[in-house]
Nucleic acid binder design. Sequence first.
DNA 1: TTTATTTTTGAATAGTGATTCATTAATAAT
DNA 2: ATTATTAATGAATCACTATTCAAAAATAAA
Lengths: 195, 195
Amino acid sequence: MRTKEGNKDKDILEAAVKVFASNGYHKAKISKIAEVAGVATGSVYVYFDNKESILLKIFEQLWGKLFIELKIVAETQNLSPLERIDAMIDLVFDVFTENPSLAIVFVNEQNHLQQSNNSAFTNYYEKFLDLGEDVIKEGMKNGLFSPSIDLNVFRYYLLGGIRNLLQHWAQDPKEFPLNKIRQNVKLLTKHGIQK
Amino acid sequence: MRTKEGNKDKDILEAAVKVFASNGYHKAKISKIAEVAGVATGSVYVYFDNKESILLKIFEQLWGKLFIELKIVAETQNLSPLERIDAMIDLVFDVFTENPSLAIVFVNEQNHLQQSNNSAFTNYYEKFLDLGEDVIKEGMKNGLFSPSIDLNVFRYYLLGGIRNLLQHWAQDPKEFPLNKIRQNVKLLTKHGIQK
DNA sequence: TTTATTTTTGAATAGTGATTCATTAATAAT
DNA sequence: ATTATTAATGAATCACTATTCAAAAATAAA
């Protein structure tokens, strides 16, 4: 018998995030991912079925991690709904601040997976969005939030806005600091543009 | 001598919008675009340098058209800044309502071009965004809009939100009607989620 | 008509890179 | 030690499709 050495699957995933981030998914070569991971090209196929499934795994882990963290915040009873929304926005920004390559992959390739209609991905993503929705619902019930807002619209609007901002930040982090973005997103979410 | 028959360039562009919309840019075959346009594969290369330049042309025309229309609204002096923002949002939604395939190409492939850093594209897009910015600036000067909003952040946020919503609309137009989206985007822009 | 010029064609080319698989290497069990 | 089993390798395969280009077709001019 022989046992697997090290964590090649983890190495490959981390390498893939880097390579996808710098070249985009379509231009990324499996041979390059293998090289960065320090394994042979063929080894990638020992751990993953194909190129697409590597991308899928990256997103699964991302949304999975976020979901767990957000769930805790969403259920913290001693915060008001507005404070919880704030904290949830913070969490999303924190994840991407920690790992800029992951941010780039997220903003550029999320479409790709949404189109492929992969259920594993969709489930995670929807569960993630539902958490935010629950908080908003509570805010409406308490009379804090405007009841004329459609929840489905709001959640996709917020996430789309954040995604686009992250994309511009990733292209030029100094010109476009993440903290300014974060503050403004919170303001816009709460008050819109009106005084 | 021989003169060109019909408007093959226009036919090819329209075919490309359809094919890009249904398969995505990367999976779209030139031979399929030619087939839909009713020309030979080789003819595509008589009118366009390569695949990428077809996509570029589509976006150039889209932003070019939008720019002209938005400029008129942005400079209409008898509308308040808020009314102008409203009208501008309407214009964007109108373009995509008229041509759903174009909406799909827009939401899925805009990233692609932004990354390629093509100046022809960037110029149009930035000019387009600047128009909205001018209106917001006026609103701030008049004391209508909150001065703590960063304009750069706001414009990317708004466009990103709209883009994401259009994407979901394009995937399921009945479940997610465009008019509801339009109304909610206006509300969220003005007031945020708070009452 | 005939010739010259330009358009159109689509089969052939050519580059690419994802994926496979026969082989080698390493470890566990006997 | 020896054998069995699984991991790891990377060169070769194979499919795919953007692009090219020599030939054919169409029209204008002579």
